[in-house]
Design a protein around this nucleic acid. Structure first.
Lengths: 124, 124
DNA sequence: GTAAAAGTTGACGCTGACGTCAAGGGCAAG
DNA sequence: CTTGCCCTTGACGTCAGCGTCAACTTTTAC
């Protein structure tokens, strides 16, 4: 696959893919003319990368994780790192849930106030 | 309260507080000598700000939300924005949960593999 | 009264994940 | 052959939330 195909299949820009390659997150072979060629499973890999970015991991961390993500094999040190990141994720999710709850109660109050002042448009 | 007190009470740097003021997130009066003085509830406000930052909101968004967060009053437009952000948060949390699950299954595989190869240190 | 601690206003630095030109080369179609 | 689209490297730009001097002033403690 060429870079544009991978980009649209994975929903990222070609710039992002070149950046990922520079960060050693993905690899490519080259055509005779020097164009990048990707294995099909690169798309899956890129989706993983996006997930891990969204989870707050850095390129440096992701590049360490990706091998064992694919092979399922990790040394004890890597297992500890994986656990640590999972626990960080858990904590972050708890914080988000708390924030969401507080935001929701603010919303409830605002909606109640809106209905009381007769603003029909704000009602569910 | 002076800036240092608020900073340590809220767990942020003084630099952050000055930045928040510049972004109109908090206000201060001044002493005769020109030093910032804060109302005690500023601490709570700063905690809110931190929560919303952690939830991925920008200063621009937070400055719009904070008034109705405190008063519980919001126009229909603001209520829509609040709902939108809450929904974004929900979606983000779902993504994080999915990522966490996938990470966890990788971990399970790695741990299993580690026990099979007799690496006691990696066992729970 | 004086030294230390805490505060003030600039202003530049930093980090990360790309966006965005610029100036060209590769490649299938007609 | 040339049109047009996709690709290449290189390099500078961006944005946000602060960190970090620097050079002073205010306040506090003794």
């Amino acid at each position: 696959m060429r870079i544009g195909e991978v980009a649209s299949a994975a929903g990222v820009s070609t710039r992002a893919l070149r950046y990922y390659e520079q960060q050693q997150l993905i690899v490519s072979s080259r055509s005779a003319g020097g164009q990048r060629l990707y294995a099909p499973d690169t798309v899956e890999r890129v989706r993983w990368i996006q997930l891990l970015y969204a989870a707050g991991l850095s390129s440096r961390t992701i590049v360490e994780f990706l091998p064992c993500v694919h092979t399922g094999i990790a040394g004890p040190e890597m297992i500890a790192r994986l656990r640590a990141e999972r626990d960080r994720l858990d904590e972050h999710m708890r914080d988000l849930a708390a924030t969401r709850a507080r935001l929701d109660s603010v919303l409830a109050a605002a909606e109640f106030d809106a209905t009381r002042s007769g603003d029909e448009a704000a009602e569910v």
